[in-house]
Amino acid sequence: MRFRLFYEGDLLSSANKSKRPAHKHDIRRAFHKQLQELWRVDGNLRDWVDRVDNNDVPKFQGIADRYGKWGHRWVPLVDDVHSTHCSLDVLMLRPGRVGGLIVETDIDNRLKTLFDALQIPTSQSQLEPPTSDEDPFLFCLKMTV
């Protein structure tokens, strides 16, 4: 399957002193809405939403229960349990002179911020309680161990 996620806004560097967990969660929330729609319209993913397991619970709800952390229930699209994987192509567009993104900014730490936002957080710091449409938190891309 192929799909595109869009994020419009600042992509701040994840510097050593400040890991910017609130910023990463804002990005995660922007992707959540897009991934939630993907799970609604894609036939293969829709099957996970509609199909029930042995306990008469929708399959994705069981996954969310398994990956519950810090008041959030996560549904990773990519994880080792289901042998799912993905590849990413990142296109960064921003105003400025040609080559300025690489020369004038900390691109590696900006990409780290993006990749961190695509996964289940590794700590609770500054995670806000989930809103009503974020339970389960549909849907992150990457499962962390």
Rank of each mutant, 00 (worst) to 15 (best):
G100M: 08
H32F: 09
E8H: 05
A15N: 06
D10A: 10
P21T: 01
I102G: 11
R20C: 00
E8K: 08
L127Y: 02
R46Q: 13
S125F: 03
L127Q: 01
D56Q: 14
L77E: 07
I107H: 03
E8N: 11
I63M: 15
N16Y: 04
E104R: 15
L91W: 10
D26Q: 15
D10S: 13
P21V: 00
N44K: 14
R73C: 03
K17M: 03
K112Y: 08
T144W: 03
T113S: 14
D56A: 12
D135M: 10
N44P: 14
G62Q: 07
E8C: 02
R73Y: 02
I102C: 04
L138N: 01
P130M: 05
Q36I: 00
S132W: 10
P58D: 09
R51V: 08
Q124F: 08
P121E: 01
Y7E: 05
L118A: 02
L77Q: 07
R97W: 14
D53W: 07
V41F: 07
R46D: 02
N16D: 12
S123T: 11
K142V: 13
K142I: 11
A15K: 04
P21Q: 06
Q36N: 14
M143I: 01
L127R: 01
D135C: 08
L35G: 15
Q36V: 00
C86G: 10
N109F: 03
D26T: 14
E37L: 13
P136I: 04
D133R: 01
L11R: 05
S123I: 03
H72Q: 11
E8I: 10
L114Q: 00
D10M: 07
L111T: 05
L88W: 08
L88T: 07
K142R: 11
T122N: 00
L88Y: 11
L77T: 08
P136E: 01
R66F: 12
G9H: 00
L5Y: 08
